[in-house]
Amino acid sequence: MTPFELAEPLTVADALRFLDPDDSTVRPLGGGTALMLMMKAGVFRPTRLVSLRRIASLSRITALPDGGLVIGALTPLSDVEHSTEVARRAGVIVRTMRRLSNVRVRNVATIGGCLAHGDPHMDLPPVLMALDASIAVAGRTGKRTLKVENLFAGYYETVLKRDEIITELHIPAQGGRRAAYLKCTTGSADDWPALGVAVSFEAEGSAISAPRVVVSAATEKATRLNGAEAVLSGATIDDALLARAGDAAADEAETISDVRGSAPYKRELLRVYVRRAVRQAFEAERPLSSPPPLAREGREGAQGGAH
């Protein structure tokens, strides 16, 4: 890595003073696991990094009385993973963590960092979009809040300004909503995914409402799939509905080709994974009193253990 200056402010206000709106070589730093990869590869050569890890107020998990959660941006992923409040209120996050990188990275990487990095391959951004999460952003001219679904501007790009910092993540109360995240890795099991799919919805008996369907990794940024959501909204879940939702997702997503697969291949993956994700969310989080599980699509069900 090339040398750089490291600032370690104790408050958000001081951190903002170290940032520079006109200098792309000055950046905030969370756990550093993602940024250090870029620095080691020589694709990012900072002149100054502003470490946020000494700002104590940014690493707390707060359970709100309304059922929501506030997670400080500097909270390590493993703290989120092991939080009983997160498990109770947004279990899909804990399930996602089990296959997110590895224990050592989760011990260091931060929840704010994985959003600010803008990497479309990361697992949590699509999940947080499916949960309708938002972030609090601090800048020199004041604070603003932003839905996570409006954060990403492109491949490794966000709408954050160079002198803004994510301070908190807010996950609204999920009530009885069910959610799932599935990913497909085409290299080794622990490779970056070729595709990620996150879904969440309300289910009354077999009727689905207020669905949110998000694709990641296969597209230049994590993206909601409105067509698939429209198919699911108000419909009764069965195999035909799942197939129509998968087809709608495949029709609308702009998949891109890379070393993990061609765009047409990822489109077919998406068609299948939307079906699987909706099914898994419906079944895995089924309340005890709800109807029996769907009949299995033989082959697909048998492969479910691969996720």
Partner: peptide
Amino acid sequence: GLCGCCTLIVDGRAVSGCLYL
């Protein structure tokens, strides 16, 4: 951070020493 050969324990938590400032 993939291979684990650089594993160190910091404040009781395993980290990848090669990715830890």
